[in-house]
C-alpha cells in the first residue's frame, strides 16, 4: 500500500543555515520522511526536500512519538565526542571525552545530561554510547 508519512505543523519561521536544509514558515504543513535522533528530520513539502529542525515542528494529530514523559535519573552513560559551550542558561558546557549520564532523550536532539551535580541540555549528535553500565 501507499506509504503514509507523518504530517507536522511548523511552529515558527526557520531560516536555513546550510544548503541541505529547507526554509520553514510558521503554519506550514510538512511531511517527514526520516526522523534522525540528532534532531534533524528529513522533510518533503511541496516540491522541496531537505533537513529541518524537529524543534520547530509539532504533530498535526495526536503525538505518537516514543518520547519519555519524565527524566530517568538512572540514565545511561555516554561519552562526549565533541566539545560544546552552552549558549542558553539551561544548557551545559562539556569538553570532548567527558563521560556523562543521559537522563532525558528529547526528540529535538537536545538531550538532558548530568555530569556530577550539574545538569543541562547538550546536543545528542556529540554523544556516543560508552558500552558499560558503570
Amino acid at each position: 500500500g501507499p506509504i503514509i508519512l507523518d504530517t507536522y505543523s511548523v511552529i515558527a519561521d526557520f531560516t536555513k543555515t546550510s544548503k541541505d536544509e529547507i526554509e520553514l514558515r510558521a503554519g506550514d504543513l510538512v511531511e517527514i520522511v526520516e526522523k534522525n535522533s540528532n534532531g534533524w528530520w528529513f522533510c518533503q513539502c511541496d516540491y522541496k526536500r531537505g533537513w529541518v529542525p524537529a524543534s520547530y515542528l509539532e504533530p498535526l494529530d495526536q503525538p505518537e512519538e516514543a518520547e519519555e514523559a519524565e527524566p530517568d535519573y538512572g540514565g545511561e552513560f555516554f561519552v562526549t565526542i565533541s566539545s560544546y559551550t552552552a549558549e542558553q542558561e539551561d544548557e551545559i558546557s562539556l569538553q570532548s571525552g567527558e563521560v556523562i549520564e543521559v537522563i532525558h532523550r528529547l526528540l529535538d536532539g537536545w538531550w538532558v545530561v548530568r555530569k556530577g551535580e550539574e545538569t543541562g541540555h547538550f546536543p545528542s549528535m556529540y554523544l556516543q554510547k560508552t558500552g558499560d553500565k558503570e
Binding site: 515558527a12 546550510s18 534533524w40 536532539g109 541540555h121 549528535m125 556529540y126
Partner: peptide, 22 residues
Amino acid sequence: TMKNPPQNPPPRPPAEFRRKHV
C-alpha cells in the same frame, strides 16, 4: 537520494516553546 543530515546541532526550540527539563 537522501543526503546526510547537517553536521551542526539543530537550533533549540523557539523560547516560547522550550520546555523546562532541568
